[in-house]
Design a protein around this nucleic acid. Structure first.
Lengths: 356, 356
DNA sequence: AGCCGTTTAGCAAACGATTGCCAAAAATCG
DNA sequence: CGATTTTTGGCAATCGTTTGCTAAACGGCT
């Protein structure tokens, strides 16, 4: 019925809510209500509206909606600028699981990269203060701040992943790194190992501090002196994980009283380390046992298959989203500020009993 | 009854353009002009406005702007749902380079995952038709379409990465897979290899078709019969890259006349394959040479160090962005519809001359 | 018929910016 | 100093949706 004199030459923008209303023969406000709040409208008209919308291929304009209601449905994830290999390995999985969880709840995921430069921080803050982002998940990094603006007071819910920032009042999803390292170290002690090499990430890095503390705890618990462990690395960024392993191998060769057990803080360090020491003539696990961090799939197929502490990324992603949406959904009833997800030790052939 | 004055829980709306105008003592339209078009306004007032904006910590509302001007500054990248390990390895780098290039041009990157389910496709199309996305980069996947809507007619500029869709009229950024495989196969023939094993990805997959064609071309060029190459794999998705390699190793063991050269279509296949055949007692490159695809950093440290064809992801990302922004900014002055980036063969110890 | 509870129409004001317009003010120049 | 150019100030419309409001339409029920 009704002649539509409006010739939609403007392919620029698709059908509007008004078009749907016209086709369905209802008021525009009814359409809006039907779409947003199906309960408040008669089933019959709702069906009519749905049909009209589908027929026109109507898609509501997300920005108009966000502008009106004052909040977007975009969550941003802040990735550390330097994607060190270890994290790099798990990033796709993290993104995948976070994105999936978000979409199921009607949110979208936007990427923000936290490079070292001011421009990058400014960009993230623009996203936050400019109303584009509704919340943020920050992966293993500190909060960006510049020009007197800080992400902390952008009024956005924020969740920290991997890095424990609960001290700063930020909900944090972390793994039990320290405990995991302590356990695996204890296991190695049980296997007779008494001299250790610890291959570190960047000096002062949170993960590194935690993990090394785990080693020390295990030693203390077993009455082994702290001097039993040598450290290598700490000068380079995780980004150069392979390079760290190479260096560590050189360090290892220099040691007078050679360790029989090696704890690496990422899989890539362990892999390049093993590759190099094998070339020097050492055998794994004959001469030395190796365990590392991250749980990269490739570990199963290195030679020898590498023991590793798997980060439960999928679970962490889901936990982060759940936490964030909780904060958005206005539950000021904070559960625990810190959520710990247990990582899983996967023992493979790279670890064996100490000789003699 | 009466006014139900729900307490507007901390209305987080920051300073507005009007506030800046008031503080700077100018009109709101002048502020807008100063920020968008610094040339059209007096240097002195511009400075005054900038100062006021900075003092207030003003950040323009991106959605209001986008709504008004009719286009957003969000680019979405559509990732294949099943992140097979090979692509998974390079995804962080892809995202990194694309995001960087986008930000430099004032755009933002949003992630969209193309899972197998209808919900995921619908979601992507909502982004496109709902005006959220201004353009799309699609990674190694076909265009999503459902409910009579297709990404193709969302009116968005689209660039395809890795997958050649220039036939469908889509600007595509691809690598010269075929040529690269042909060259490396030819090299192996030169080294005396005459029996090949090709470890395939999913049957019918674009990359796989191209790469296998490259093998055949090299054989033909050298006058070696096609029967010289056995195929393994093709049943599993890339996602199970390691599993494919494991299977391939089993297949290899069964072959009567064993190949001396192996071409794997991803690094992970090659790695698990090597791991398994070594366990069976074969040596690499003594008994067989292996080359693979992707250029994962880990290849350098596998045993033996693995020859691989490196995908120039950084370059591809930049090219994709350049192409997309070209399409957004300019008229349809299409350069070449297909841009080919050369991949780079990295020869390591896993390849050697054939015995005898 | 009358009453009452649901639904809906129609209107209008937001949300925060951009932009065209015209007149007013200021700066420039001869 | 008058004429001309440049720069601003207001004003108002616009982007597409949400949402509160009133009044009207509708139906079921007694």
């Amino acid at each position: 019925m009704g002649k539509n004199k409006q010739v939609p030459v403007e392919e620029q923008s698709g059908p509007l809510m008004a078009d749907v209303a016209r086709l369905a023969g209802v008021a525009i406000s009814t359409v809006s209500r039907a779409l947003a709040n199906p309960g408040r409208v008669n089933e019959k008209t709702r069906a009519k509206i749905d049909a009209a919308a589908k027929q026109l291929g109507y898609t509501p304009n997300a920005m108009a909606r966000s502008l009106r209601v004052g909040r977007s449905n975009i969550i941003m994830i802040i990735l550390p600028g330097s994607l060190y290999y270890g994290v790099s390995q798990i990033i796709p999985q993290v993104l995948q699981s976070i994105n999936k969880a978000l979409i199921q709840n009607g949110y979208n995921l936007m990427i923000a990269n936290l490079d070292r430069d001011a421009e990058s921080e400014r960009h993230i803050l623009d996203l936050a203060f400019g109303g584009t982002a509704r919340g943020a998940i920050i992966l293993s990094s500190k909060l960006p701040e510049i020009d007197g603006r800080s992400l902390a007071n952008a009024g956005l819910p924020i969740v920290s992943m991997l890095l424990d920032m609960s001290d700063a009042g930020l909900p944090s999803i972390v793994t039990n790194d320290r405990e995991a390292v302590r356990d695996v170290t204890a296991e190695m002690i049980r296997l007779g190992h008494r001299r250790f090499l610890y291959i570190a990430g960047p000096e002062g890095n949170y993960h590194d501090v935690e993990r090394y503390a785990g080693v020390l705890e295990a030693l203390r618990d077993a009455g082994v002196p702290e001097s039993a462990v040598s450290r290598s690395g700490g000068r380079l960024d995780y980004q150069q994980g392979f390079a760290i392993g190479v260096h560590a191998a050189a360090d290892f060769a220099q040691l007078a009283d050679r360790p029989t057990a090696v704890i690496a803080t990422s899989d890539d360090m362990a892999i390049s380390f093993i590759s190099r020491v094998q070339r020097m003539g050492f055998t794994v696990p004959g001469d030395l046992s190796v365990v590392s961090f991250d749980g990269s799939p490739v570990c199963e197929f290195s030679s020898p298959p590498l023991s590793t502490i798997e980060q439960p990324v999928e679970e962490m992603g889901q936990a982060a989203v759940a936490r964030l949406l909780g904060a958005i959904g206005r539950s000021p009833e904070e559960p625990a500020l810190r959520t710990t997800i247990r990582s899983k030790l996967i023992l493979r052939e790279s670890v064996a009993a100490a000789k003699g």
